[in-house]
Design a protein around this nucleic acid. Structure first.
Length: 209
DNA sequence: CTTCAGATGCTCT
DNA sequence: GAGCATCTGAAGA
């Protein structure tokens, strides 16, 4: 399946965020196992004008340095002392922009993802756990074993890459305010969150990624 | 279903 | 020292 090229990310961040819906995020573990999820929820962050962005007005600190990197790089940071958030860098190098990956559903190696996330096999999950498998940025990183060690990776090759997937139909896509940025004044109301409803499959899909 | 408190450590002032 | 792009379990309705 086609890996999204660098050029995919070198566009308006909101466009990238919307088009990432349905795409397949692949995480290759050190042991070689390939975990794959379908992206269902994203948010855009645009530093030059967005008070919710870590690099608002091009603010450069050790943490935000990755946001200034080339499009198609991972940006992963620690939040609330115990969770991680995964972003993809967008727009040309020097523009501190990215897309936060807020949610996904597992499509491959569900047992390993379930082990990372809940400490048990996928078949042992409750209906509630299955419904909330990876529906949050911290949950996604936990399930895919992503930490700051994976910050700054090239998203066009292993161990972390993204493939074109089946996009939701336009009428399935929901748009709204971003989550958890109430402090950001006018930017708190920017409709830069995109998502669609996707059922968690009962079984792994075919090994195409 | 809902609200709510607590966890926990890094980042920047 | 304050705040944070979050999550969980417990308790209530």
């Amino acid at each position: 399946m086609e890996i999204l090229p660098k050029e995919f990310y070198d566009r308006d961040t909101r466009t990238v965020a919307r088009e990432l819906l349905g795409c397949i995020l692949v995480r290759v573990l050190d042991g070689g196992a390939r975990l794959a999820v379908r992206i269902t929820e994203t948010e855009a962050y645009i530093g030059r004008m967005d008070k919710a962005c870590h690099a608002y007005q091009y603010k450069r600190t050790p943490r935000t340095e990755t946001l200034f990197a080339a499009p198609g790089i991972s940006y992963i940071y620690l939040i609330y002392g115990m969770y991680h958030c995964l972003n993809f860098i967008t727009e040309r190098a020097g523009e501190p922009c990215g897309v936060l990956i807020r949610g996904a559903v597992p499509v491959q190696n569900r047992d390993i993802i379930a082990e990372n996330r809940f400490g048990c096999k996928a078949s042992e999950l409750s209906a509630y756990q299955r419904r909330h498998f990876l529906d949050g940025p911290g949950k996604l990183c936990k399930g895919l074993a992503l930490t700051r060690k994976e910050n700054g990776l090239d998203l066009t090759k292993p161990p972390l890459y993204v493939c074109r997937g089946t996009s939701p139909r336009p009428e399935e896509v929901q748009v709204g305010k971003r989550i958890g940025v109430d402090y950001a004044q006018e930017a708190a109301d920017f409709p830069w969150r995109f998502w669609f409803a996707a059922e968690t499959p009962e079984e792994d899909e075919d090994d195409l990624f």
